[in-house]
Design a protein around this nucleic acid. Structure first.
Lengths: 99, 99
DNA sequence: TTAAATTGGCCAAATATTGACAAGTCATAA
DNA sequence: TTATGACTTGTCAATATTTGGCCAATTTAA
């Protein structure tokens, strides 16, 4: 499930129109449409707003929003899986470290 | 181990100077120095060249080069780990699929 | 101290991203 | 059929980011 599909699903379940969400995000409807279709990427700030407007869990939305970007970055690489594991280890290490 | 550290290590083990590799990559020495320090990101094409020049395994270099980018993308996000796992699943799925 | 190697800072050129707009499709209603 | 509303598509200019070169500063080795 990608970010765009997810917000579309949420929007429809709340019976909202694209133009309503677009207005709340202060972008035009075509732009909002592109967010749902994954043609354009939402800004982080817009993700937060959308979570609020759609009564969705912010972390869930941020997670797939981020995952979209990560996937985009690695999708054409043969070494994608290895790279993701390396990155994951670094994140784990960083998290364990006390700061 | 990050990409920059790795190529520095390889370069030193072959007793090459930054300016020699810089010349091969057709960039200036300061720029090459930045690649080693991770201040600038190498282009994919430069990674391939470096693997060749340093007798290193292309996939190893590409892996850490990619991992650097992924890490950069997620490092400040609380949901980084979850996002990486989601992205990994997608890659796995994509790989399994016959095309 | 000198020379070579490396690093840091800054700027302009190239590239990519962004959002707005106009025009399009599609479905449904009158 | 025509009209209307929802959504999509394509294009453009403005903006932001990335890139590499240059110069100067710093570090290292002798």
């Amino acid at each position: 499930m990608q970010f765009g599909e997810r917000i579309k699903e949420l929007r429809e379940s709340k019976e909202l129109l694209q133009r309503q969400l677009a207005a709340s995000l202060e972008i035009d409807t075509p732009m909002y449409s592109k967010l749902e279709r994954g043609e354009r990427r939402a800004k982080r700030e817009q993700v937060l707003l959308l979570a609020d407007l759609l009564d969705a869990d912010v972390h869930d939305l941020l997670t797939i929003w981020l995952a979209d970007q990560v996937y985009d970055l690695v999708k054409d690489e043969e070494d994608a899986q290895k790279a993701l594991r390396v990155a994951e280890e670094r994140v784990t290490y960083k998290t364990q470290k006390k700061r």
